[in-house]
Each structure stands twice: as C-alpha cells, then as structure tokens.
Amino acid sequence: MRYALLVLGGPYSHQAAHSALRFAHAAIARGHRVETVFFYHDGVYNASHLAAPPQDEPHLVDAWCDLQRTQGTALQVCVAAALRRGLLDAREAERHGKSGASLEPPFELTGLGQLLDIGQTHERLITFAP
C-alpha cells in the first residue's frame, strides 16, 4: 500500500518522530511504500539541518534524510508552520533577509493543501503526535 505519515511532534522533545521512523521502516519491511512524510505543528523542527545531537543519541534529521535517499520518501514541511518557528530554506531566508537557511533539501517547504492531497492520493495516513 501507499503510506504517508504526519509528524506533529518535535524531535527529542517527544517520542513522535522516533515512533514515526520505526513505523516507516516496519511498513517498508512489510512491502509497503512510505511515499510521503508531512511535518506540521512542532513536527517541522525535524527538518532543522542545524540539529546537532550528542553522538550517543540517534540523529533524527539524518534518519529522515536516509529514508528519502533509500526509499524516495518525500519529506514535506508546512511552510506556514515552519516560517513562524524559524525553519527557512535558502529562498525564504533571502526573502526575509536572514543570514542563513535552517532547512535544506531533501526537506521541502510546501503548503497545507499538500497534506489534504496526501489524504486523497495515499491509501493510509498515520499521524504521530507529541
């Protein structure tokens, strides 16, 4: 089946991102495709490429990027939720006069309409909340 995940919890502060990653790998192991992960609310912090966790903790941002690289999973971040929390890609950083970007590919900023599209184009949408 075509799966999508909605992550509403920030990394490390809550278990939501860990659970979502574990679920993604288990779904793939069962032969499903995890085509999209959408990040909303504090879940957008998962996309911060400035995250620098201690080495003995899982690197969640890298884990998301690995999922994209190995499975082609799209990593979509709600632009409105991201901007107000300081998650800006290069284009938004320039537009807002900021010195640097905090969000890089493979994460992509997108609108909330995309989340509604996901509900129509994927067979399953599972939400992981803080």
Partner: peptide, 14 residues
C-alpha cells in the same frame, strides 16, 4: 493550526 487546515480544505472546495 487545526483551523488553518480546515480553512485550506474549504478553500480547495472540500
């Protein structure tokens, strides 16, 4: 942020 999603849905004709 929940209301934002509802408003987007309505704006998309849902």
């Amino acid at each position: 942020e929940a209301l934002d999603l509802a408003l987007v849905g309505a704006a998309f004709g849902q």
